[in-house]
């Protein structure tokens, strides 16, 4: 029978796919908020309501707040204030991105079959979902022009790491010290991104990183 965690993971895949295909920054931010919420409640679904301690709930609430609310809000404000052209502007076309997303998934599910014996009774979808999210995050970072989209790719990468961490620590779902550290770094990163973007925008009237690259003086 279908488990609640698998249901959530199916939606993670859906969000990865849609984020590869989306052509608007706002849409991308909304997808990231959705993905953040889903990813942060997955440990809850895996725990089946038992064995969640008080600090577990604290971690869960903090993750949900940061991933689902604060970081999307920061991105939302950044897009509203900074980006005057709200298209994603990819180096690789959307259709090709979807195709590469498929390849990443295929590779992820192949690799996770090799890996799963070394993992404690892995859920069938958790590991491929984590690997796919990491891969797609990398891909988003590589192939999109704007600084905001690169931060969003980084966020997605972090979501993937979080999923992988959950897969590794089956018995101790709520000892996400490592992920929590990454999360805080990322939160600081998003804040800094907001400030830097603002300055790039004031200097160059655009946030395309291609402009920065051609700056040789």
């Amino acid at each position: 029978m279908i488990s609640f965690a698998d249901l959530l993971l199916a939606f993670v895949f859906l969000s990865v796919l849609v984020s590869l295909a989306s052509n608007r920054l706002m849409e991308l931010v909304k997808i990231m908020a959705f993905q953040g919420v889903i990813v942060s409640i997955i440990p809850l679904a895996l725990a089946h309501g038992s064995g969640i301690k008080a600090e577990g709930w604290e971690f869960l609430t903090a993750t949900l707040l940061i991933k689902g609310l604060i970081m999307p809000m920061a991105l939302y404000i950044a897009v509203k204030k900074v980006a005057n052209r709200r298209e994603v502007e990819p180096y690789v076309s959307y259709n090709a991105s979807i195709f590469i997303g498929l390849l990443i998934t295929m590779a992820a599910s192949l690799i996770s079959h090799r890996l799963s014996p070394s993992m404690p009774a892995a859920d069938t979808l958790l590991l491929p979902a984590g690997l796919t999210t990491v891969g797609a995050g990398f891909f988003l970072m590589m192939t999109r022009h704007k600084a905001i989209t690169q931060v969003i790719g980084y966020l997605m990468l972090e979501n993937g790491i979080y999923l992988l961490g959950t897969a590794m620590a089956r018995k101790t779902h709520f000892q996400h010290i490592l992920e929590f550290g990454v999360l805080l770094d990322l939160l600081a990163g998003v804040m800094i991104m907001g400030i830097i973007l603002y300055h790039i925008n004031r200097t160059f009237d655009d946030v395309d990183t291609g402009i920065l690259r051609s700056l040789k003086d």
Binding site: L17, V18, A21, Y94, I98, L102, S109, L125, P128
Partner: peptide, 25 residues
């Protein structure tokens, strides 16, 4: 943009197919 929309549905179906193959391995 419509072909992109349809391609997403194709990719989703293929995802599902890949996982169904993975589950039976």
């Amino acid at each position: 943009m419509v072909p992109k929309f349809i391609l997403i549905s194709f990719a989703l179906a293929l995802f599902a197919l890949i996982f169904s193959m993975g589950a039976s391995l």
